[in-house]
């Protein structure tokens, strides 16, 4: 008797959620690379959050220590105006992750909304929305982004908004596809059969289904956004105001001196690449975790 009540009590509320998460994480953790990547991302997030407190030197730099090679005092060396490269990299991480998170959240919201609307409504709305999505997909959105940033100024917010508003087409396509497979399914029908409202069906049946396939894409989307932001800084000199600095501008700034002082390029590039690689690795971990081979309960 007690085991029965225990079991029911256990099944109540949120505990089943937790047990499911634990099972999923077990599959994620099977790949050691994914775990390393995840840990590294957590470290970077902490660095991003507390860059002003963690940075060993002020951003302004010290004119007495110009172009120093990496040492115990300056792990990543210094540049031609005496700025500590480790400090700059930390601010770079802070800026990059802010942009990546902001633009991804924005793109995700727009794209998933458009995709699910198109998929659920069908008909002419679907046609209009998807043609617009195709347009956004093929339009040189980068050019648009740069043009608008020229007008709105170079704040973090305008970079986020511009990348977010132009890059959502992939989210829209993916979520529309997933929604379409569900729209006429027995699952949705059984939701309607119990008298569930449209909102309930979307929230409990459609969105979780869309999310399971889109979460992996999101990880790779972050990589894409970070790269794009890097290019904005490097090739177009579009970036934030000091003390924030994008990796792109960091590279651009230091490129003239790179022949004599290679650490000016290698150190930021290493950090930058480590962000991308760990995101990719985490994305692949997610994929294993969510794939039908790893689990049946997709």
């Amino acid at each position: 008797m007690s085991t029965v009540t225990d079991a029911v009590a256990y099944a109540s509320n949120r505990s089943w959620r937790r047990s499911r998460l634990r099972r999923g994480f077990g599959r994620f953790a099977r790949g050691p690379l994914s775990i390393i990547g995840l840990i590294w991302i957590i470290v970077l997030v902490v660095v991003a959050l507390f860059a002003p407190q963690l940075a060993p030197y002020p951003v302004a730099g010290d004119i007495l220590v110009v172009n120093e090679a990496p040492s115990l005092a300056h792990w990543f060396g210094t540049n031609n105006v005496g700025q500590d490269m480790l400090t700059l990299c930390m601010y770079g991480v802070r800026y990059t992750l802010t942009i990546a998170a902001g633009a991804t959240i924005l793109s995700f919201c727009i794209g998933v909304f458009v995709g699910m609307m198109a998929g659920l409504q069908g008909g002419w709305l679907d046609q209009v929305l998807m043609r617009f999505t195709d347009f956004m997909y093929s339009f040189p959105s980068f050019v648009l982004a740069i043009t608008v940033i020229e007008f709105t100024g170079q704040g973090i917010v305008s970079v986020i908004v511009m990348l977010g508003l132009t890059q959502w087409a992939g989210f829209a396509r993916l979520s529309r596809g997933m929604t379409l497979t569900l729209r006429n399914s027995e699952l949705v029908e059984s939701g309607r059969a119990i008298g569930a409202s449209r909102a309930f069906v979307i929230r409990h049946y459609v969105f979780p289904h869309v999310w399971s396939s889109i979460s992996v894409y999101t990880a790779f989307f972050l990589v894409n956004i970070i790269t794009q932001d890097g290019m904005l800084g490097l090739f177009y000199n579009v970036g934030p105001q000091p003390p924030n600095i994008s990796f792109g501008s960091l590279l651009l700034l230091n490129t003239p001196d790179v022949l004599g002082f290679p650490w000016l390029l290698t150190m930021p590039v290493l950090v930058f690449v480590s962000i991308l690689v760990s995101l990719i690795v985490v994305g692949e971990g997610l994929q294993t975790m969510l794939s039908p081979k790893g689990s049946v309960n997709l």
Binding site: R20, E186, L187, F200, N297, L298
Partner: peptide, 23 residues
């Protein structure tokens, strides 16, 4: 086909509870 009509992301308890939640 209960496999496609039951919510695969929810356990049995939740699947049976859902109609009650809806109403």
């Amino acid at each position: 086909d209960p496999v496609s009509a039951l919510n695969p992301r929810a356990n049995v308890f939740r699947n049976i509870e859902e109609p009650l939640l809806v109403h």
